[in-house]
């Protein structure tokens, strides 16, 4: 049986949302930055515990401060991936407010928080970020393909 799940990716601009999708869907990475406007919709089928799940990935344009997502984009969302950039503190300083805002617009849906660009930091810095962010965070690197597939599969399992 096939199931479809709509997932949105959100977070500040330049944190690597599009790069994570690109790595996950096409196993590609590009150093150059091309911003997303509106939303880019992509699809990838995954196999989780014997179930075929079509992940419909809504890769949203990032904001510079608080996350403002048009209501219609959120309709039918079943999972959220919130991405920040471990090398830019401004992208996780207001994580709490952003999450609250998202929760207000949607009923509680499963979410994962990803600290991306882990390749730019050492273990010590990552541990210090973990202690600063009062949520469960998984570190990823779209560049080096570290923990990317795991993060998407983890969310898929939470949605099933």
């Amino acid at each position: 049986m096939e199931i479809s799940k709509k997932v949105i990716l959100t977070g500040h601009f330049g944190v690597g949302k599009t790069s994570l999708v690109q790595q996950f869907v096409k196993q590609k990475f590009s150093e150059s930055y091309l911003t997303t406007i509106g939303v880019k919709v992509d699809k990838k089928q995954v196999d989780v515990d014997g179930a075929k799940v079509n992940l419909i990935l809504w890769d949203l344009a990032g904001e510079s401060s608080a996350i403002k997502v048009p209501k219609s984009y959120l309709l039918g969302t079943q999972g959220i991936i919130y991405v920040f950039d471990v090398s830019r503190e401004e992208t996780f300083a207001y994580l709490d407010d952003d999450l609250l805002e998202l929760k207000k617009s949607m009923l509680e849906v499963p979410h994962v928080i990803l600290g991306n660009k882990s390749d730019l930091m050492n273990e010590e810095d990552l541990a210090s970020i973990k202690s600063k962010v009062p949520h469960e965070v998984a570190f990823t690197s779209a560049k080096e393909n570290t923990n990317v597939e795991e993060a998407f599969l983890n969310l898929t399992k939470m949605m099933l």
């Binding site: 479809s4 406007i37 509106g38 939303v39 992509d42 699809k43």
Partner: peptide
Amino acid sequence: PFMQGLQHEIAKLRIGEPVIYNCIH
């Protein structure tokens, strides 16, 4: 892909009420 996952939301629309999506790539 855009329509996938939206089935329930679309079914719930009231007659005449539009849902508008801007800038979908």
